[in-house]
Design a protein around this nucleic acid. Sequence first.
DNA 1: TTATATAGAATAATCGATTTTTTAACTGAC
DNA 2: GTCAGTTAAAAAATCGATTATTCTATATAA
Lengths: 222, 222
Amino acid sequence: MNQHLQPVISTASSRIYETLRRDLVGGRFAAGEKLAINALKEHYHVGLSPLREALNKLAAYGLLIQENQRGFRVPTLSRAELDDIASMRLELEGMAFERAIQHGDAVWEAELLAAAHRLKRADMSLEKGEEWEALHSQFHRTLVAPCGSVWLLRFIEQLHDQFDRYRRLGPKMPTVRQTLDDQHHQLVELALQRDRKAARALMDDHIQKSYQVALKRYEAHA
Amino acid sequence: MNQHLQPVISTASSRIYETLRRDLVGGRFAAGEKLAINALKEHYHVGLSPLREALNKLAAYGLLIQENQRGFRVPTLSRAELDDIASMRLELEGMAFERAIQHGDAVWEAELLAAAHRLKRADMSLEKGEEWEALHSQFHRTLVAPCGSVWLLRFIEQLHDQFDRYRRLGPKMPTVRQTLDDQHHQLVELALQRDRKAARALMDDHIQKSYQVALKRYEAHA
DNA sequence: TTATATAGAATAATCGATTTTTTAACTGAC
DNA sequence: GTCAGTTAAAAAATCGATTATTCTATATAA
């Protein structure tokens, strides 16, 4: 499901990394909060060494701030950063989607349809939990997967995690969500038709709308 | 000099991280090599815990590959990856430079001239060691610094480190190097004149030429 | 009162040793 | 000779304890 690390074999360190990543993205820690390592150790039933290794990785990934001799903090949120993240998503995901449309083959088309279908079923259940989040991430990953650039995919993944810290600040907004869910299918449509320009335009619009949602939530939150 | 971590206060972990990063970028480890943690411990006179924390961060940063239960390896080099890195640099650094030219203020102009001057003095000494590398990195960072996007700067920094693994595979090539050094000054010129289009074009050419150098070295190496 | 100093508690970083897993060498059956 | 199974050695991951640093509260001096 998640290719953040090859979880073929798991270690305590890789497990707690993935768990913490999800919890950070899902907003289970307050922005700006100082992490109490001992408390984490207890809460997640994990030893100090694997925990610290995971925290170090998360800091390098950008989901934590590390300050020498004073541990780890959850990054604060700001309008400026949200704008930055959204505008980088516009540039990079748009670019990647266009390239994916140029290079994607029949296997990709099938995977796209599959990912969209799985997501739609989750949309309908109206249970927007971790399950939906995973399918949603996977769908967006599939859209850009055959773009041909490993580094572009890596940056997009990172931006998604950052963006979701804002998007997931509040509860779902059914009407906007409906529009966004519909766009997912239209994105697949345009991809299959290889209509690069229209696909790019829709992707831009999709990110813009998501940004509006995230911004509303951020402002309600602050 | 390097803002990879705030080295205001340093810990064993942050020191060994920075040292290893330099050594990885500088090619002091063979591509694909498996890192012998015990040997590293001895060589760098550092304990196991800070060393492992540094290795974890470097893996998250992309300068190492981590495989569960089988430690850390230096990523291999490939033509495809070099192409990817170079084309991402073209996109992102070009974008950043254009934005920097739009937003950079008088302080930036001064810093640009200063960075270019320091680099030129190092160019002339013909000693292309770590000292020159540091000034070169700093110069390129300064070029794009006021682009307005923290995430864009972060990605560019990462791509530079990756690119340098290829560029630094071989010894200097005086004639090409002369051209590239000259371009540094022309980049400053065009930035001061706020000639966005020309600046972008020159940046593209600069990265292209650097890519040619890196590619030659990669092919000679393999 | 304000600022500075300091002791004690809390926390971060690191160390040394242990446990777990992988790798390499060896064995014997086919 | 080759291959599966076994074992010893090596390496990775983790643990428990120690050391170093920061934070907090209190005391003292200007």
